[in-house]
C-alpha cells in the first residue's frame, strides 16, 4: 500500500525532502550536489508542477493556509464600563461592558478581488458633513449609513462573508464562548524606565543623592564595545498602542441593550473602540439562531 500523503503533513513538517516528492528525479543527476541538478534540472516551483496537490511549505499560499483565521466575522464595540457578575456559588467575576452600537457590515473583501476573505465592519454614526466624499460614495455603494469607525475582520473563507448592511448585534456572540480582543491602550506619554519597564530604581536613602528613579547603567564599558546596544530599553513613549488579548470568555449577552460582558479588564479608556472576534484557539461556536438581519 502506498503511504497516504496529506497536504497537512507536508505543510507542518516542512522538511527539505518534501520538496522532492512531487517532482520526478532524473537518474543521471540524482547524486549531484547542485540543488537544481538534484531536481533533475527542473527549476523548483512553489506549487508542484506534477498532478500532486501538495502545496510547498515555504510558499506564500501555504503560509496563508496555515494561518489561523476565525470562521466568523468579528465586530467593533464601545468599551463602556467595568462591573461584576456573581456566579450562583457566590464567586464574583469582574467584567467589562462592551456595547455594539449600530454595528453593520459595510463591504465584503473577496479572495478573487483582494486576495483574502474579509468583511469591513462599521460602528456608530458620523455626521455626513464630517466625512470625505470618497468615503460617502463608499457608504452609498453598499447602502450603509456613514459610520464612526470602520475596520476589517479577516475570515477563513466565503462562508464567513456577510452581506453589506447586515446588522451585527450582541447575539452574534454566545454566552460562554471565548473571544480575542484588540484595543488601543491608554497613552501614558513620555514615561521613565521604572514606569515603562517596571525597573526597581534606586534606594530612597543610604546616601543616595538625586538619583531615585534613574535607569542606571546602559551597558558595559570597554568590554561591551563602549557602546549602547540597539534595542536597549530606556525611557520613552508609553502606551497608546494596540494591545491584543486572547481567549477571554463572554459572560453575558444582552440583545436588547446590545451589550456583551467580557471577563476581566480590557485595554483603553471608557468610550474607546474595541474589536472582538471568535478566538483562534478554539473551534467556532455554534450560534443557536441565525442572527442575520439585513437593513432596508
Amino acid at each position: 500500500m502506498p503511504p497516504k500523503i496529506s497536504i497537512w503533513r507536508h505543510l507542518k513538517i516542512g522538511s527539505f525532502f518534501d520538496f522532492i516528492s512531487p517532482i520526478k528525479i532524473n537518474n543521471a543527476s540524482q547524486f549531484s550536489s547542485s540543488s537544481r541538478a538534484a531536481f533533475g534540472g527542473v527549476k523548483m516551483k512553489r506549487v508542484s508542477s506534477s498532478t500532486s496537490p501538495t502545496l510547498l511549505a515555504a510558499s506564500k499560499a501555504a503560509a496563508l493556509e496555515r494561518r489561523r483565521v476565525p470562521q466568523r466575522v468579528g465586530t467593533l464595540a464601545v468599551k463602556k464600563e467595568m462591573t461584576a457578575v456573581y456566579l450562583p456559588n457566590g464567586q464574583r467575576i469582574p467584567c467589562t461592558i462592551l456595547q455594539l452600537d449600530r454595528v453593520q457590515v459595510v463591504a465584503p473583501k473577496t479572495k478573487k478581488e483582494h486576495g483574502y476573505w474579509a468583511c469591513q465592519v462599521g460602528l456608530g454614526w458620523k455626521a455626513p458633513k464630517n466625512i470625505t466624499k470618497p468615503m460617502l460614495g463608499h457608504y452609498e455603494k453598499f447602502g450603509v449609513a456613514p459610520k464612526k469607525t470602520i475596520k476589517e475582520f479577516r475570515v477563513k473563507d466565503e462562508n464567513g462573508i456577510l452581506a453589506p448592511g447586515t446588522i451585527i448585534n450582541a447575539d452574534h456572540f454566545v454566552e460562554g464562548q471565548y473571544v480575542d480582543i484588540w484595543a488601543t491602550c491608554k497613552g501614558k506619554g513620555f514615561a521613565g524606565g521604572m514606569k515603562r519597564h517596571g525597573w526597581a530604581g534606586q534606594p530612597a536613602s543610604h546616601g543616595n543623592s538625586l538619583t531615585h528613579r534613574a535607569m542606571g547603567s546602559a551597558g558595559q564599558s570597554q568590554g561591551g564595545g563602549s557602546r549602547v546596544y540597539p534595542g536597549k530599553r530606556m525611557a520613552g513613549r508609553m502606551g497608546g498602542h494596540s494591545k491584543t488579548i486572547q481567549h477571554r470568555q463572554v459572560l453575558k449577552v444582552d440583545q436588547e441593550l446590545g451589550v456583551v460582558l467580557i471577563n476581566g479588564p480590557i485595554p483603553g479608556p471608557k468610550g474607546g473602540i474595541v474589536s472582538i472576534q471568535d478566538t483562534i484557539h478554539r473551534p467556532s461556536p455554534v450560534v443557536p439562531e441565525p442572527h442575520i438581519v439585513v437593513s432596508m
Binding site: 455594539l100 452600537d101 449600530r102 456608530g124 460617502l136 457608504y139 449609513a145 456613514p146 441593550l257 451589550v259
Partner: peptide, 14 residues
C-alpha cells in the same frame, strides 16, 4: 451622493 439614514442604536446607558 445618496446618504442612507442611520439605523436605530441601542440605549446609551446600558
Amino acid at each position: 451622493i445618496k446618504i442612507h439614514p442611520p439605523i436605530k442604536g441601542p440605549p446609551k446607558n446600558p
